[in-house]
Computed example of a mutant assay.
Amino acid sequence: MSYKNFPMVPRVIFGRGSFNQINEVLAPKRLSIDAPFIFLIDDVFKSNAWLTSRIQLAYGDRIIFISAKEEPKTSQVDALVEDIILMSKDRPSGIIGIGGGTLLDLAKAVSIMLTNKGEAKDYQGWDLVKNPAIYHVGIPTISGTGAEVSRTTVLTGPEKKLGINSDYTPFDQVILDSELTKDVPKDQWFYTGMDCYIHCVESLTGTYLNAFSESYGNMALELCKEIYFENNLSNIEAQEKLMMASWHGGMSIVYSQVGIAHAMSYGLSYLLGTKHGIGNCIVFNHLEEFYPEGVKLFKQMMAKHDIELPKGICANLNDTQLDTMINVALSLVPLWENALGDGWKKIITPDKLKNLYLKM
C-alpha cells in the first residue's frame, strides 16, 4: 500500500506580538538587492499604520493592497504575476500574504505561478504543479479558513472553482499572531470560525478518516465549542484559541478531505460570488440529513451569537444557473467520496442537489 507523503509548513512562529519579528525572519531570505519582497495585504489595512509601519521596506520591496470582498480568481493571480514580473529586475525573494483566506490563497498561487509557465487555471486540480514555488510566507489576520496550513489555494477560474492542490503550495513560513485578529467584525468572526468547525465535522464523519486526521479534527472541534459556547473566555484567550483551531482544522483535512458543505458552497461561490465562510454556513444549515449532530450544534451556535443567515439566495435562479452550480459541486469527486463513500452518485443526484440549493 502506498501512503501519501504530504508536506507541512516547516517553520512557524506563534505568539501575540510575533508579527514584530517579520523583518528579522525575512532578512536572511533576501536573494539580492534586485530581488524584492512583495507583500500582498488585505486593503482593510491600507489606512492602518498599526500594521504596515512594522514592515521595513528596502531594495524595491513593495506592498500591494488587495480587496478581499470577492473570492480570489485565476485571472487575478495571472494579473498579479505579470505586474510583479514587469516591476522587478530579478525574480522576487519572496511573497508575503497578510490577511484572511483570500489573501493567503493569492500569495500561495502567485508564488507558484512565478516559477511555472502558463496560466493559473492550468493548475486547478491535484498535483499539476511541476516546479517549486518561490519562498512564501503566510500571516493570517482572521482565523478559521486553515489556509495558513493547507496544501491548496482555492481559486475561481473561467470554468470551475477548484484549488491548486500541490506539494509546493504550503507556506515556507507562517506567523501566527492573534493580535492581528483583534478588529475582525463579529459576523466575519463567526462565518470564518464556522469554516473551521465545518472542516472538522466533514473530516471527522468522512470515509477518509484516519487517526492522523481524527486527532487534529477532535482538537479543533473542542476548541471551536469552547470559543463559541463558553462565556468566561477573555477576548485574547478566544483569539488565541481560534487561531489554533484554524491551524488544527486545516491539519485535519491535510490527510483526509472536506465534504458536502464545501462542495456545494463552491457552486454558490462560482455562480453568485458568495464568500467561502458564509457560503459554507448557508449550505451547512440545510444538511441535517448528512450531518445531524454537527448541524444541530451549528444552529445552537448561531442562536447564541444572534447570527441571521441570508435566505432565498437561489430562489430566482433559472435552470441553466442551477445546473451550473450543480455541475461545479459534482465535479469535486474526492469531497463526495469522503462524505458518502464510493457509491455517492446513487445518493447525490442532480435533482437532489437542485432541491437543496432551492432551500437556500
Rank of each mutant, 00 (worst) to 15 (best):
S256T: 08
A261M: 08
L272Q: 04
A27F: 12
V184D: 04
V137C: 06
L297K: 08
S269G: 14
T274W: 10
C281F: 07
F45M: 05
G343V: 03
S234D: 14
H248L: 14
Q257L: 04
V81R: 05
D187G: 03
P92Q: 08
D319K: 10
P72R: 07
I134K: 01
G125F: 12
S47E: 15
N218G: 12
N165W: 08
A263P: 06
M360H: 03
F290Y: 14
M302W: 10
V12R: 00
S213Q: 09
A263M: 09
A339I: 06
Q239D: 15
L128T: 08
L180T: 10
K352T: 04
L114D: 05
V258Y: 03
D90E: 15
I66D: 02
K182L: 07
M264S: 04
A35Q: 08
K89L: 14
N131V: 09
F45P: 08
I278S: 05
I112Q: 09
A120I: 06
N5C: 09
D105M: 09
G267A: 05
I85F: 14
K241I: 08
Q188N: 12
D43W: 02
G273K: 07
F229L: 15
L80W: 11
L297F: 12
N20L: 07
I307N: 00
S331F: 05
D342Q: 14
K108S: 05
Y255P: 00
S203Q: 11
I260E: 07
Y123R: 02
L340N: 08
G259C: 12
Y357L: 01
C281I: 04
V129D: 12
K4D: 07
F65H: 03
G157T: 09
S213Y: 09
M194H: 10
E71K: 12
L317W: 07
E70G: 06
G15C: 00
T156C: 13
N235R: 15
I96K: 06
R11E: 13
N355F: 06
P158K: 14
P158Y: 13
W247I: 03
N232Y: 13
E82L: 12
W189M: 07
T320V: 13
A58V: 10
V25S: 00
V333K: 15
N210T: 02
G157P: 11
S18C: 07
K304R: 14
W336S: 03
N355K: 09
N327C: 02
R62L: 01
C224F: 12
K69W: 01
G312Q: 05
F39S: 01
M301V: 13
S18R: 00
E293C: 02
L340K: 09
I84N: 05
D61Y: 02
W344Q: 09
E214H: 11
